[in-house]
Design a protein around this nucleic acid. Structure first.
Lengths: 189, 189
DNA sequence: ACGAGTGACGGAACCAAGTCCCGTACACTG
DNA sequence: CAGTGTACGGGACTTGGTTCCGTCACTCGT
């Protein structure tokens, strides 16, 4: 019999999201979160850099995207490689089972500027990962950056649509369609 | 004779940048900044929302960009309107006289994640402003968003180059060139 | 000229985020 | 049984940020 319940970080993240949804991010103290998880304040900061991070720590999605870009067929164009990464995201993290969780989380983030701030920074990290992965495919620097940026834009739009869709359409499908739209609209720029 | 020296916010911003450059952002207290400006902690927070904002408050550049997009020739394509906005930025805020100041500020920001975070959020605001301005030109939503995003990318790259250039080349020139490169690289996506 | 605002500031008390240090109880090893 | 590693708790402390109240010069109406 273990002295402590397992999965402390997971319990903290769940408690945090619950409390944020109940009373709002601002009205929730780190001590509140820790207490609901049956832990102490110190332990919270052992598992998360800061209070915001408890909503973002889940995704080490950087490597997932970079890996999918690298694993795309050699003949794939930059945007096709990016589309391959969006497929991977749809299969591993934006799954139908996680849609409710993601929607709740997104509602909390949208309500607080400091959380959108953190989200923006995470997004920069994703773009950087994809840019690097594209460069490693031999694609020129600027082209890599442009493709990654367009992919991130498509992902953001698809993410918004997917988290609110009622048809149960898969993230990958939405993302593919949005990415095609983006590609088409480039012609009018 | 006035009771207080004028331009409190400006003095605070200067004191802050000086101190950040001297001893680093983390080793500088809000009280330190206020004291160097000859003011109190309370007054600092009367002028700036938080400690980070003292580095960003300067730019109400959102309206400048949106206005320049709106003022672009009616026949201009989305990216041409965006280029017009970058010209305006080069003439009003990224002027040769401010280059040293901008470079010092950028060095401070680059050194701290929480400042890059704030910068990322500000960038989202700029993109939103330009997107709206493009929509008001009658350009479709997605096309507006794509053009604004590409413009922001070009601005970021141009900004990096301009803040380190030794030739004295103007921001507008660099931005125009980068934007052309971006446009060209879109063909390979 | 005089009293009543008004506006920009200072100071102290206060709360929550985040850090540090040290102590504790269990598990695992020899 | 002794030693070591590990995950946690708690309390003291610093700093960012808020709130409340007081102060002093300037201004305006009468």
């Amino acid at each position: 019999m273990a002295r402590w319940e397992p999965n402390a970080a997971e319990r903290l993240a769940e408690a945090a999201l619950d409390l944020f949804a109940e009373r709002g991010y601002e009205n929730t103290t780190v001590i509140d979160i820790a207490q609901r998880a049956g832990l102490g304040k110190t332990t919270f900061f052992r598992h998360f850099q800061d209070k915001r991070e408890v909503l973002f720590g889940r995704g080490t999605i950087d490597e997932l995207l970079a890996g999918a870009v690298a694993a795309a067929p050699p003949a794939a164009t930059p945007l096709e490689a990016v589309a391959h990464a969006l497929d991977a995201a749809g299969e591993e993290v934006f799954t139908p089972a996680r849609r409710d969780f993601v929607a709740r989380r997104q509602a909390v983030i949208a309500a607080r500027p400091e959380l959108r701030e953190r989200e923006a920074l995470k997004n920069l990290g994703l773009i950087a990962s994809m840019t690097d992965a594209l460069k490693r495919r031999g694609i020129p620097d600027l082209t890599s950056r442009v493709a990654a940026e367009l992919g991130a834009l498509a992902a953001t739009i698809a993410y918004e649509q997917w988290s609110q869709t009622t048809t149960g359409e898969h993230f990958s499908q939405i993302a593919r369609r949005v990415l095609d739209d983006v590609r088409a609209s480039m012609a009018f720029c």
